[in-house]
Amino acid sequence: MRILVLMKMAPDVVEELEIAPGGTALDLDYVRMILSESDDHALEQALLLKERHGATVTALALDAPEVDDALFTALAKGADRAVKIAGLDAGFPTSQAARAMSQAIAQVPGLSPADLILTGVQAIDDLDGLIAPMVAHALDLPYLGIVTRLSLDASGRTALATKEYPGGVRGEFEVKLPAVLGIQAAEKPPRYVPVAKVRAAMKTQKIDSAPASLPADGGCAAAQVVEMKRNEPAGHAEMLDGDPESVSDKLCGILTGHGLL
């Protein structure tokens, strides 16, 4: 069984985000990148499957600041191979990321055929779509998202995936492999790997590098950001004054506005 984990770095929103002078993008000099949270879960799920069924896990990521850290961490956690796709312009949109990954899967030796391609269900910067369905479309593979539990049948040809629905309901799906799954949460929170192990991985293992090769045409039409601004953090609540009745009415209005009533 061969599992591929697609990983993407996304801006770390713990840090302050700054808008670049043009006003249509983040100032990338300011941003710190971090592995997209659900990609971390995808990696964890892959490692859990490896422990349960025996598999090789390859982490595939697009070059970005701090991506080496993320890949060495993946190796330290138990991934067998790490591949980095280099050469995309900073701030690439998700559709381009997906195309570069699909190309790499087809072209980089040893990546295909993969039995299972896992990635995070969605990243906070997936403005023009999600990676998993894009890769599934490009490689003509089955797709399912919001997966929170995953097991393989004895033959290794079918996966049983649990998808989360509203109100705590879960759907159990049979997915023919190979397939691309968008992981929302691994069965266990992503493991912590001690710094010493990451350091050891840096010394003894390496990251394979592959150039990005994109088809000449843009693929699908792009979405253009015309303006970007910071959603100012509230800092302080908007206070509702008045007697209990009028305050309650105001609040009801607000809740209705948020679709909560």
């Binding site: 801006p11 983040l26 906070i124 910067d125 039409a221 979405a223 253009q224 959603n231 209705t256 679709g259």
Partner: peptide, 30 residues
């Protein structure tokens, strides 16, 4: 669009139409 975990609001245009829009819940009262 509300992106980056709610920290950024972006106004986005599509180069062509039709445009497929993914809409957060709560945009309007049901």
């Amino acid at each position: 669009c509300v992106m980056y975990g709610g920290k950024i609001e972006a106004t986005v245009e599509a180069a062509g139409e039709p445009v497929v829009l993914g809409l957060w819940p709560g945009a309007r009262p049901a």
